[in-house]
Simulated scan of single mutants.
Amino acid sequence: MSHTLSRDDADTVIRTALRGFASDAELAALARTEPLRTALDLDSLDFLSFVEKLNRATGVRIDESDYPRLASIDSCVEFLTAAD
């Protein structure tokens, strides 16, 4: 996948990466600005797994310093759709 994603594509990638940590119903009910780690009770290893899934799906390099930019669905979309 290209580094340049549409917002809709980024949203789909994010929600797909979160499967396994939450049910489809929980993901559908998740507010776009709600903190993911709190809302889905993600511990450090779960969050790292989520980051790795995003990386594999998009090819976007995600450094540890970028983790705060992955706090919510909206912030993840912004991060993944930002120009290189």
Rank of each mutant, 00 (worst) to 15 (best):
A57C: 12
S75W: 04
S6N: 07
D84Q: 11
E78Y: 00
L70I: 05
V60H: 11
S2D: 13
V60F: 02
D74H: 08
L40R: 01
A57Q: 14
A22E: 13
T38C: 02
R37W: 04
L30K: 02
L27C: 09
F21M: 06
Y67S: 07
D11T: 03
D46V: 02
P68A: 12
C76F: 00
C76W: 01
R32Q: 11
S44L: 07
D46C: 09
E64D: 14
A71Q: 08
L80E: 04
D74A: 10
A82F: 01
I62P: 04
S65R: 14
L18E: 01
A39K: 08
F21N: 03
P68F: 04
T58L: 04
L48R: 01
L70A: 06
T33Y: 05
E26S: 15
A82S: 15
F79E: 13
R69L: 13
A71V: 12
L5W: 10
A29T: 06
A83R: 10
N55F: 07
D46W: 00
F50A: 07
A31Y: 03
L48I: 08
E34F: 03
I62E: 06
A71F: 07
G59K: 04
A10L: 03
R37A: 09
F50T: 04
D84L: 05
R69E: 13
P68S: 13
T58A: 07
L80M: 11
F50H: 02
A10N: 01
A25Q: 14
A57H: 08
S65M: 12
S65E: 15
S72K: 03
L45H: 05
H3T: 09
R19E: 14
C76I: 00
F50Q: 02
A83E: 10
L27E: 06
G59T: 00
I73Y: 00
L27G: 06
S2N: 12
H3N: 12
D24A: 09
D9T: 11
E64C: 01
S2V: 03
L40V: 00
V77P: 08
A28I: 06
P35V: 02
